[in-house]
Nucleic acid binder design. Structure first.
Length: 443
DNA sequence: ATATATGATTAGTC
DNA sequence: GACTAATCATATAT
């Protein structure tokens, strides 16, 4: 009876690499219930098997066939299967159930959140969808802003899916191959269905570990992409000059109350062609055009208030510009001397503009009184008249050019905040002495 | 290379 | 939810 283990051993060596053979201690007590004649039969058979390697292939094949057809084969085979099943189960019956890997779950969740795994297509990631939803009316330029990102993301997505499919396919192929092999071998050596199943499990585990690596590197790629394209803070983009002009124009023409309404913000965003920008790296809603305008106004307000002196020049310039614009719009009859387009900032109109700005500056620096002495051309002088008219019309600065304070931070109260000034025309500062703006409010 | 300007973020307030 | 004030991190000017 001590031949059984050796039989399995010799075969295992051929067929299944790494499969544990039957240990010696199993020899006694299980198989030896037959008579002596049968023992002799088995002994013969085993002897034949042992000599198979010495024979030619054809011969071996023939012997194999003979063995398969032997009358003892089924019984023997069953016994072997039984023994093996017990052994294998005792060796590693414990670790069948496998808890889900937390890291794999993490990766899966992230890929799902980024829209890489998840449902097919649909315009890209969940974040992008949120962007489209959040930006509302100005969604048009949104896609332009993120098309690059989305293209790259879908590229990653495609690679991911291709690779995943490849692995899946390879896994399946390999599994069927192994299964066929085992089934084939199960005709000649004891392989139970359970064992096949176990083997399949092992294969799947191996392949899923490869998949996890794929998922990991995909996650990394997405993270890099995000930080490269979407973190607006890291890749800050200044507004273009025109946008800044428009925003400044609004700011300085509403200096008494520079808090644009939501509609106004929307309007400004549209006029400035401000695009959305992604904020944060989570699935938080992205920045809307509106909130970018809000950012701008928030920054502007705080920085203006902090150092009014620094912004004086800018303030005067924009005041003049707005005034000229308004003048051009309202009284086009008297505009023979200013052919420039008032609206397009930084274009051909810059000459007149800068002249006006200089004028206002000199008004400021000279404290007003002697501004007539500055070398200003006649056309500028006529503009001054227009401006005075316009300004008094606009109601912002009733004292006009002759006043000392052309452009005082009227709206700012003692606390440093903009008090609501619904009627700007009444908020002039006639009581304030010259230059008081510079001294008391900064810092 | 350094300083300043500037858009975005964050904590805290109302 | 919008705002302020402080701060971050980058873009741009020097």
């Amino acid at each position: 009876m001590d031949e059984q283990p050796r039989l399995m051993h010799s075969h295992t060596g051929v067929g299944m690499a790494g499969h544990p053979g039957l240990p010696q201690h199993m020899q006694e007590g299980t198989g030896g219930t037959d008579g002596d004649g049968r023992k002799q039969d088995i002994g013969d058979i085993l002897q034949q098997i042992m000599t198979i390697t010495d024979q030619s292939l054809d011969e071996a094949q023939a012997r194999k066939h003979a063995l398969n057809c032997h009358r003892m084969k089924p019984a023997l085979f069953n016994v072997l299967c039984e023994i093996k099943e017990k052994t294998v189960l005792s060796i590693r019956g414990a670790q069948e159930e496998e808890p889900p890997d937390p890291q794999l779950m993490r990766l899966d969740n992230m890929l799902l959140a980024e829209g890489v795994s998840g449902p097919e297509k649909g315009g890209g990631s969940a974040a992008a969808a949120a962007a489209a939803a959040a930006s509302g009316g100005v969604g048009a330029d949104n896609s332009a802003e993120h098309s690059d990102y989305r293209a790259k993301l879908s590229q990653i997505r495609q690679i991911y899916h291709t690779e995943l499919e490849k692995y899946e396919q390879a896994c399946n192929e390999f599994t069927t191959h192994v299964m066929n092999l085992l089934r084939e071998q199960s005709r000649t050596r004891p392989i139970s269905p359970k064992e096949i199943e176990r083997m399949v499990n092992i294969i799947h585990r191996k392949f899923s570990s490869i998949q996890m690596q794929l998922k990991q590197s995909t996650c990394e790629a997405v993270m890099i992409l995000r930080s490269r394209f979407l973190d607006a803070r890291r890749k800050r983009r200044n507004f273009n000059k025109q946008a800044t002009e428009i925003l400044n124009e609004y700011f300085y023409s509403h200096l008494s109350n520079p808090y644009p309404s939501e509609e106004a913000k929307e309007e400004l965003a549209k006029k400035c062609a401000i695009t959305v920008a992604q904020v944060h790296h989570r699935s938080l809603p992205p920045h809307t055009c509106r909130s970018r305008v809000s950012n701008w106004f928030g920054n502007k307000r705080i920085r203006y208030k902090k150092n009014i002196g620094k912004f004086q020049e800018e303030a005067n310039m924009y005041a003049a510009r707005t005034a000229v614009n308004a003048a051009n719009a309202s009284s086009h009859g008297s505009q023979a001397n200013s052919p420039s387009t008032p609206n397009s900032a930084g274009s051909a109109g810059s000459f007149n503009m800068s002249n006006s700005g200089d004028l206002f500056m000199s008004v400021q620096s000279l404290n007003g009184d002697s501004y007539q002495g500055a070398q200003v051309g006649a056309n500028v002088q006529s503009q001054v008249d227009t401006l005075r008219h316009v300004i008094s019309q606009t109601g912002g600065y009733s004292e006009g050019l002759t006043a000392n304070q052309m452009y005082s931070p009227q709206g700012i109260n003692a606390n440093g905040g903009w008090q609501d000034a619904p009627t700007p025309s009444s908020v002039t500062s006639p009581t304030e002495g010259p230059g008081s703006v510079h001294s008391d409010t900064s810092n």
